[in-house]
């Protein structure tokens, strides 16, 4: 059904698109991550532990790659809030993954300044090279391609964030090399933000 005579709503619009949460294995922090958690949580007032939910979830994601139902329950227990409070946050913020992702997550900025410098072509080339659509992980499980909104590096457009590192001035013709370098040399092949690079 449509409210406008010339515009059909997506069929998907009519039913919930909410994905069921992957419950995963029982979860606890490694001792190192637990120590990091305890160091972090004292930054907030004792009765405001909930403030630590984003850093706590980052620790989960760095530990096991994505966030499961079990890990949300674990974080909720540490912060003395309900699992629903944690899920509320996880489902809102785009940087938390609720299903497994590739070893390298390629987040390509698609907003205006990157787009006018060729980000759309870049996404096409990566999608073609990996034979996937944006949002998917390739068959080898090595790469996930994401289209993301402005990364705040518009002067170095177009930009790809590979996991947490910025790759600036990316060109469609350089995609093959980027992927090959990641396959052979991993994160060591990344250059990172120009301000960090210039200082070396």
């Amino acid at each position: 059904m449509s409210f406008h005579p010339n515009m059909a709503y997506d069929a998907r619009f009519q039913k919930s698109v909410r994905e069921l949460t992957d419950q995963g294995e029982p979860f606890v922090y490694t001792p190192e991550n637990l120590a990091k958690f305890q160091q972090m949580i004292v930054r907030y007032p004792a009765e405001q532990k909930r403030s630590g939910v984003l850093p706590a979830l980052y620790l989960v994601q760095y530990q096991q790659g994505y966030i499961t139902g079990e890990s949300m329950r674990y974080v909720a227990g540490l912060l003395e809030i309900t699992p629903a409070d944690v899920e509320d946050v996880v489902t809102y913020y785009t940087m938390f993954f609720r299903k497994p992702v590739g070893k390298y997550v390629l987040s390509v900025c698609r907003t205006l300044s990157c787009a006018v410098n060729g980000a759309e072509r870049l996404i096409e080339e990566i999608a073609h090279a990996l034979d996937i659509k944006p949002g998917e992980t390739d068959k080898s499980g090595m790469f996930t391609l994401l289209e993301v909104e402005c990364l705040g590096a518009c002067d170095r457009a177009p930009v790809i964030m590979v996991n947490d590192a910025w790759q600036e001035h990316q060109r469609p013709e350089g995609v093959k090399k980027l992927l090959d370098d990641l396959r052979t040399r991993g994160e060591a092949s990344l250059t990172g933000c120009h301000l960090v690079k210039e200082n070396k």
Binding site: L112, S113, E149, C150, G152, A153, C154, D155, C193, L195
Partner: peptide
Amino acid sequence: ESEPGTFKDHVLMER
């Protein structure tokens, strides 16, 4: 610093 086109605070914080 999330307004598209903005990247000034990045320089300040980084350098």
